[in-house]
Design a protein around this nucleic acid. Structure first.
Lengths: 338, 338
DNA sequence: CTGAAAGCGCTTACAG
DNA sequence: CTGAAAGCGCTTACAG
């Protein structure tokens, strides 16, 4: 059971017949080292199975080579997982892990932060905060500790802050609406959730502007983000009462609630009603009918966020916000038959 | 932008007029310290906003107070996310994060490990490996580095290994089959995936045993775990060709494929066919019809796994495997109308 | 009850 | 090209 003691740099030095300094130089590619010496050191390190102690490196360098990820929900807040779609967040998280790895960073998954002390025990060089609310107290926490952050989604309360990555909600919303209009819709309703994440706020604004530009009466149904399972069908039914010929429901749970409400009422999709959801998922791809959706590009979003955070941590000035385009995936739910 | 230099223990000592040793004693509750001195130290630490440098603590103690989590898929392996259900893994992961936090551990999300070197750069005291395959090479990796692991799901190739937590697949499968039989089913088919995770292997075995015990002909349809979206409906159609009156489809994507295939063929659920899925989800709860499902208790599973791993890391002997019961959630898909 | 000293395993000026 | 020494910020015997 007891594993053999792990070799230290001095063990490698001893075997190679050199000093620890030289071993360090060889292993880190610093300084000039004789070719023969280098070979001996590498052979010794390999033979001993040496791997440098990261903790010691960190103490020396002051860098943790670890970034934190803060998702907008915990395990208990089940309902929050459905705000957009579970898959989006899982793919985002796994992509952040892999992108961090490619940057030689480890990824610490942070729990929901309740008190300032909560954050103190985590050793990170910075963090990615997903879906900040305006003036999000979590961001203030990081600021207080002097830890750099990058947000996925904008913090509306800090319009001047350039450290964010976000899917282009405005353009995405327009793409959906243009698509529905091109398919013949004249009364397009927006069925969405009343939450201050920039994706939703900007989507609502874009909808209002688009309907104004097209001389179309805006029909907006807002739901509260709690009591999801039950409220979706209620809200969708309220939307159908207004007799739209198309509905754009950004969150997945509202789109599925809409399908259910339509069915109960004998409204056929797409024949009587065109539908689009705001986030792609397996459900959208393979459901009945398949749902037109926006691909929010979680993989790319993750990579850009990690990229930007690493730049910020390293003090490289080239940072700045990054707007990611969402791509429309037209499917049967918005394709009039015949 | 430049944050003020972080106070060190010696700064606190200076302000409090004591030695670093005493500060350490106070802050860690070691040794005897005069009450007045203690108060001075605490006041000084508070005034300076002192928080100990975890890296230095780690170097000294040799413990990282960090555990790793290795999920059975990466961001790219989209299909794998659907093997069971995305929600299960997201809830499991978030629960592991919170359970780790409660144990004063941080949670490092590990990327898919490809080479032995991949693991070396992560500083963890141990790891939770989810859904190991028999003789999983990832587990060997941890073994080689002398890092303790706990698996979620059993490693069939190491039957003697006691370091696992798993949902009771055998009892869960029986519960589903008993339930379907009680609802009147006589030809119950198993529609599942050909993957060597213990949850599925034990489920198949339990199904075979149950059908044998009940003198019922076993009908098993196995699908390959790749090409998920397309293969689900194909496999489900093949299952329907055998004219079962009930189908147990453990993975969510097969259950939804089955509903689709049934609809195409005019088979009504639950009137003509009873259906149960093996993992609970929002889809199961709110779909049309709502699906009878097993609640795999991801929150509890996560807590037990973290618990067990921490015990193993600390060398406490009380460890041992933990079997978590799955709970049946009967819904309309298996409730004959009338 | 309190503190000086050693040491965890590295890296990096600096000297040779 | 190579190495002795200092130091990153802690904790813990040990001495007083």
């Amino acid at each position: 059971m007891a594993s053999p003691p792990r070799p230290r740099i001095r063990d490698v030095a001893e075997v190679a017949g050199v000093s620890a300094t030289t071993v360090s130089h060889v292993l880190n590619g610093k300084g000039r080292v004789d070719e023969a010496t280098r070979a001996r050191v590498i052979a010794a390190a390999e033979r001993l199975g040496y791997r440098p102690n990261s903790t010691a490196k960190r103490l020396r360098s002051g860098r943790a080579d670890t970034i934190g990820l803060l998702l907008p929900f915990g395990a208990a807040a089940e309902h929050a997982q459905h705000i957009l779609a579970v898959e989006f967040y899982l793919t985002l998280a796994m992509s952040v892990v892999e992108a961090a790895f490619d940057h030689d960073q480890a990824l610490l998954q942070l729990p929901p932060l309740r008190a300032p002390e909560d954050l103190r025990r985590f050793v990170v060089d910075g963090a990615i905060v997903v879906d900040p609310l305006p003036a999000d107290p979590r961001l203030r926490l990081f600021d207080q500790l002097g830890l750099p952050t990058v947000t996925v989604g904008r913090d509306a309360a800090r319009p001047a802050d350039p450290w964010w990555v976000a899917t282009d909600s405005t353009a995405g919303t327009r793409a959906v609406l243009d698509h529905l209009a091109a398919a013949g819709a004249r009364r397009i309703a927006l069925l969405t959730v009343d939450i201050e994440w920039s994706w939703f706020v900007e989507g609502r604004r874009a909808y209002t502007a688009w309907t104004h530009d097209h001389g179309i009466e805006p029909i907006t149904i807002l739901t509260r983000p709690d009591r999801l399972d039950s409220s979706a069908v209620e809200a969708a039914t309220a939307a159908l009462d207004l007799e739209p010929d198309a509905v754009y429901a950004p969150p997945q749970w509202l789109a599925t609630g809409l399908l259910k409400a339509a069915k109960e009422r004998g409204v056929r999709v797409p024949d009587d009603l065109l539908v689009s959801v705001g986030v792609d998922s397996q459900l959208a791809r393979t459901g009945e009918p398949p749902l037109t959706a926006l691909d929010l590009a979680p993989v790319r979003t993750a990579r850009e966020a990690v990229d930007l955070l690493v730049q910020r941590i390293e003090g490289r000035a080239s940072g700045g916000s990054r707007l990611i385009p969402a791509e429309l995936r037209p499917r049967r739910s918005s394709t009039p038959s015949g």
